[in-house]
Design a protein around this nucleic acid. Structure first.
Lengths: 137, 137
DNA sequence: CCTAAACCCTGTAGTCGATACAGGGTCAAG
DNA sequence: CTTGACCCTGTATCGACTACAGGGTTTAGG
């Protein structure tokens, strides 16, 4: 299968496939006489797996770890679960951070009543020399 | 004030200050005889403003826009409010996306019961050739 | 006066996960 | 025989920094 066909079957961009090959997420495929890559069905399956992991917010390094466990063949479900749980914790932390951020923004914007310069409470609040800490993103 | 002192007063890293100068977020300061940067109190205030915006998740480009409005002096509170609201919408979208992602992960992980290879339902679910779409991050 | 540590400078490269060319080669249809 | 779709390599770009390398300056202590 040529790269365009693999792209169609997976919904992945051609450049991204070449990128995944370069960084070792996908194996180097055989080449045809014209130097075109020749992908196999197993590569398609693997790529779909990668894309699903990415859609779930796993980093490429996490995906690499999962793939190594799979490729090694002697993975333990406990290891896999640990990666999943760690990632879930990450996601929950990010949600909590964003929610803090949201409420700070709501506070700021709610003070805004369309007045003219220089009475912008939004900017004034951001310029205040208070020690009040805003949550890090 | 030298760069280290500005870093201490703002909690910003020295390299980041030089970076902000390079990309035009901070003005080019005067230089002492030894070529050391000489920052003023107004720069400190400006940098604190920038850091607060960043902590609220504004991109550097959004910060740049806000600073241009301020520097121009003829900004309208409506413009500022619009930037704030647009950003708030962004944040809410990201929260919703992450929450979708969280529930997908919970589903995956909850099927995991510490079994041995090759009975890992977590990996199997990711390998499934279903058309079921996972939410994009 | 000397030395060591702390500070400052410029410039470049690296991070992550792609994306976007530039500049070429190949192939099938009309 | 040409057009357009496809493929190749290699490099540059994005955002927002961070981390050096390789140098100069200042400051405190002995």
């Amino acid at each position: 299968m040529r790269i365009g066909e693999l792209a169609r079957q997976t919904g992945c961009q051609v450049e991204t496939i070449r990128y995944y090959e370069k960084v070792g997420i996908l194996p180097r495929p055989l080449r045809a006489h014209n130097n075109y890559r020749n992908w196999r069905q197993a590569d398609c399956r693997r790529l779909k797996f990668v894309l699903r992991c990415r859609a779930l917010g796993f980093s490429l390094n996490e995906v690499r770890t999962l793939l190594e466990l799979i490729d090694g063949g002697h993975y333990n479900c406990v290891d896999v679960e640990a990666i999943g749980h760690r990632h879930l914790d990450d996601v929950r932390t990010r949600i909590a951070d964003l929610q803090q951020l949201e409420s700070s923004l709501v506070d700021l914007v709610s003070n805004c009543h369309g007045g003219k310069t220089p009475d912008c409470s939004f900017l004034e609040a951001l310029f205040e020399d208070s020690e009040q800490q805003v949550v890090q993103e």
